[in-house]
């Protein structure tokens, strides 16, 4: 619990709850008022927007839709359980008739629910982020250590950094279709496509920040390393990496944020299962509930993005040696 509060930036209230009670009231009250004003404006504004799919959903309608989405998810799970039960019964009957009969266990292929889509999105974004980091951190260290390499790669980095995922996507799709050919693919093509797109777009902040962190090691510490005659590897592990960690984490947090944003766009276009596809399907579906369901997705996307950033902040606090710096 205290960890959660700490990550939410409320740690100071745990330490001394009594004296800070009024402060707690203030710091909870003010955001609450802000939220209420937002809900009020949303409600009023939504009533006055009439689309071809009906009136724009207000907070109440969106809340209703979120309940529906939970219901749908539960119903789908029950259907799945029943499917497997039926299959088991069928297989048992078959075996009773003929013990040598070949038994087929088919996986359930129902429609993925909203929550399945969330899981898929999270898996995709984390996989893409990990791949991007595995490339960006070592590359950043190399570029940061060597000014020749830095001058060689800097123009390329500056060129590719601002490219939108939407521009990469068609190219990545075509390349994946051409190269990733397998009879029994471990991953779906659409998954690979969004994965690569996410990685391509999210590796730049980590790369640049790591490079800057590595190249700005204090001269004093470099002198220490020289006087001690540390070899290359020890120099990297004991001096370079620890002193670059704060910058590296700044980059990683930016990268994860970008990865999450890029993912939604990539899923929409690549038709990879996930929240992006959910939004796109609802848009194409065009029922009177669609706008409300999309709004639920928007809020969930925002909330997950927030949680991802807090997770990184938590990690950063754990890894950071400089406890005097206030991380936020």
């Amino acid at each position: 619990m205290s960890n959660i509060l700490a990550t939410m930036g409320l740690s100071r209230f745990i330490e001394n709850p009594k004296t800070n009670f009024s402060q707690l009231g203030k710091s909870l009250l003010i955001p609450l008022i802000g939220l209420l004003i937002f809900l009020f404006i949303w409600e009023i504004g939504a009533k006055n927007v009439h689309t071809s799919l009906g009136t724009f959903p207000g907070p109440a309608a969106v809340y209703q839709q979120s309940l529906t989405l939970i219901e749908e998810h539960k119903a789908e799970r029950i259907k799945e359980v029943k499917f497997y039960e039926r299959q088991d019964v069928r297989n048992e009957k078959k075996l009773a008739k003929n013990p040598d009969a070949k038994i087929k266990v088919r996986p359930y292929t129902g429609k993925p629910t909203f929550f399945d889509q969330i899981i898929t999105s999270l898996i995709t974004v984390l996989a893409g982020f990990v791949i991007a980091s595995l490339i960006a951190i070592p590359a950043g260290i190399l570029i940061g250590l060597n000014s020749t390499l830095y001058s060689a790669f800097n123009p390329l980095i500056q060129l590719f950094k601002p490219v939108s995922p939407l521009a990469w996507l068609p190219l990545v799709t075509m390349i994946v279709s051409a190269v990733y050919v397998s009879k029994d693919p471990m991953f779906a093509k659409s998954f690979i496509t969004s994965l690569i797109t996410v990685s391509l777009c999210s590796l730049w902040p980590t790369l640049l920040n790591t490079a800057v962190g590595v190249s700005s090691i204090s001269k004093d510490l470099q002198n220490v390393s020289q006087v001690l005659r540390l070899n290359w590897f020890t120099h990297i592990v004991k001096i370079v990496l620890p002193s670059a960690i704060p910058m590296m984490f700044t980059g990683l947090r930016l990268s994860l944020g970008i990865a999450w944003m890029v993912l939604i766009a990539a899923e929409m276009l690549a038709q990879n299962p996930g929240l992006g596809k959910f939004v796109w399907d609802e848009f194409q579906n065009g029922s009177s509930n669609s706008l409300g369901r999309i709004m639920v997705a928007v809020l969930v996307i925002g909330f997950i993005g927030f949680l991802l950033d807090r997770c990184m902040l938590f990690l950063q606090r754990k890894m950071s040696w400089d406890k005097t710096v206030v991380l936020r």
């Binding site: 204090s218 004093d220 001096i239 002193s243 040696w321 400089d322």
Partner: peptide, 8 residues
């Protein structure tokens, strides 16, 4: 001059 200890 400024100790130059590794802060971590």
């Amino acid at each position: 001059q400024n100790h130059s200890l590794l802060p971590w």
